[in-house]
Amino acid sequence: MAVEFSPAALETFNAIVARYPKKEAAMLPVLYLAQREFGHIGQEAIDYVARLMGQSSARVYGVVSFYTMFNMKPIGRHHIQVCRTLSCALRGAEMVTSTIKGKLGIEPGQTTPDGRFTLSEVECLASCGTAPMMQVNDDYYENLTEGKIGEILDSLK
């Protein structure tokens, strides 16, 4: 199946590009759109975005691989990102990761076999005053305890 935007996504693409003084500046929002449409940004998506943007695949690959929020491989429906940087580490980040590992049976970097969760450890998410914390997809969960983590995971279907 060829990787390409739906007509609605193409319309969004054109609207994004029109907002910027130069087309190349729209690269990050266009990649976000691609990730939303395709689930992840693999080589075919990179080639497709490169054609749309009038740039080389190599340049687009360089951008996609530089930023942590672009996933080059498929991930689970719920992407759990546990902050491990100093302020969170001082307040129990390791407890958060080990609790999740125990509940889901996966290591950081892995996805549950049912495709429900992917676990990652990430750097400072600007939530240091409410540590320890994790981000699941776009949402922040703060001041975590073992009990709270269990409830959150159970609620994510």
């Binding site: 100093l86 302020s87 750097e123 400072c124 600007a126 939530s127 240091c128 005053g129």
Partner: peptide, 11 residues
Amino acid sequence: DESEPGTFKDR
């Protein structure tokens, strides 16, 4: 683009 460890004022 607030990202400095220990900083969450801009957020």
